[in-house]
Design a protein around this nucleic acid. Sequence first.
DNA 1: TTGAAAGCGCTAACAC
DNA 2: GTGTTAGCGCTTTCAA
Lengths: 328, 328
Amino acid sequence: MPTIRDVAQHAGVSMKSVSRVLNGEAHVRPQLRDRVMAAVEALDFRPNLAARQLAGHKSFIIAYPFNNPSAAYITEILMGAARTCRDHGYHLVSEPVELDDQMLPVIERLITTLRPDGMILTPPLCDMPAVVEHVARFKVPLVRIAGGLDLYGESIVIDDRTISRAMVAHLMEKGHRRIGFVLPHPEHALAQRRFRGYLDGLAEAGIEPEPALIQPGRFDLESGAQAAAALLDLPLPPTAIFASNDDMALGALRVAHSRGLSVPDDLAIAGFDDSPASRLAYPALTTVRQPTQLLGAAAATILLGGALDPAAIKHELLIRGSTAKLAG
Amino acid sequence: MPTIRDVAQHAGVSMKSVSRVLNGEAHVRPQLRDRVMAAVEALDFRPNLAARQLAGHKSFIIAYPFNNPSAAYITEILMGAARTCRDHGYHLVSEPVELDDQMLPVIERLITTLRPDGMILTPPLCDMPAVVEHVARFKVPLVRIAGGLDLYGESIVIDDRTISRAMVAHLMEKGHRRIGFVLPHPEHALAQRRFRGYLDGLAEAGIEPEPALIQPGRFDLESGAQAAAALLDLPLPPTAIFASNDDMALGALRVAHSRGLSVPDDLAIAGFDDSPASRLAYPALTTVRQPTQLLGAAAATILLGGALDPAAIKHELLIRGSTAKLAG
DNA sequence: TTGAAAGCGCTAACAC
DNA sequence: GTGTTAGCGCTTTCAA
């Protein structure tokens, strides 16, 4: 493997000049630049990351420790962020983290051995004060995605509230007046936002929220099924159920199926997330698509010093079979 | 941040001794070892990866470039491999790769800048000769998971064939004699194995395979739905459909639902992979669980020079609602 | 079993 | 604008 020294000799310039060209520094005459590039090509030179890291006190690494809320979410974030990193000569190092007593040590090891130039955190890690403070202590630039706003680091927040309201409006359009809601896992920062959106939607139609129509959830199929069962057992059951994520909506769908209710004829069901399973279900679930890859890309962009267009980060309502019929 | 030099001074030994202790080299007197460790503790010393890489010509990095067949699969491999890496002081760097003209350059950049000590490849990348040969050219130790056997690198193969046969046997036990099969994507190395298992299962019961009952598939919901439609349109349709992955089985489930067929009463459906959606479907899909995390861990173990117990890598039949009824 | 010296391949700081 | 020098923090080699 050729080194910078070889390139410098081949081009008849100093090592520093080669370094300058390679790093795109200013004040380099085009002529010298060309000579260096020619030598780089000729020798098929590849800079050694380790040497750059050591000498330059930069790692060219963004770390993404994650705890697995959903495989689809993780990979989308990963892909968005990794691609952005790659375009800037950076690398993304992702590392699974358990929510046990090894959590902090693992993150600490990630920071102290890799010395990443930045870090991305998603729920639930991004909302755990112990984790965020740990990162803050090492002064690693941090971007938190979809978390609360009151901790160290930049936040990328998405407007769950507005889109939740839009979903309720969609159900209203379909003629639904009694809309059950399955709450998000209470420990997620987005819980408030999605619930508020539901209330907004009702308010917009001049409908009073009804406590019995609002059921707790924990983001898993089981809790969705339980909530749906409770809703359908009501003396006056809802004609539509809006679950605040897809897994819970699929739980509701399962209950409907097992009770012989036809979806969407007897009951409309809507979810949130556009999970792969929501597409594969029968009927396919009406849901909300989050621009997850974009979120990952945006996080990386921020860390790499780029500008971000917050307007680009928009939810999208995906109307599918599970809410395709008019109520009544 | 303290350096080895600081630790050496603090302990009153040479830098080399500290290095020896840290790397667990032999020929170190316990007494010296203890003194060094005490200094490490006292100073909260963390070795700098970049410096170790540069001086030691080792990167402590395993690379995992992947193309996204399924998010669940990717994250499981990732988690298994990353955890093993971590336990050995290594890091896993994963990188999404598109199947376009950037594919080879991206992989090359991954190799030449990171200089990984090993690489893991999963389908479809692990079966693409261009990719594997590229890796071979750089002499990066490679482990391929679930691929063919005729390329550079170690292979971790799993016995799809035996478990496919077991699935057919299960359906036979339920009284099914006409079992439709939806073939895997033909470009995957596992295609032959899963199909053979189906044939084995029939042969075991003394049943001749019937060409009309064997439909092509491409691993996506659409192709599964098409195959199921074709099977159900047969003059003598099957009473069970075994799709060679879950997405296609869910396509079959969708067709059954939309035709008003009850699953499993009118039609049994089985899949392969234990995807999240297979658990969330109604009825839940009978399927095959692959020990995906173990595969990732095994791949890392091999690269890190560990021994592997091939017997540990076993499929598991998951009997769920979609095949719960006796045929007839 | 331990230590001293040299150097991994690059960039920072400074001089010119 | 370009070159020179001196390291970055560790491991290797070789000597003791």
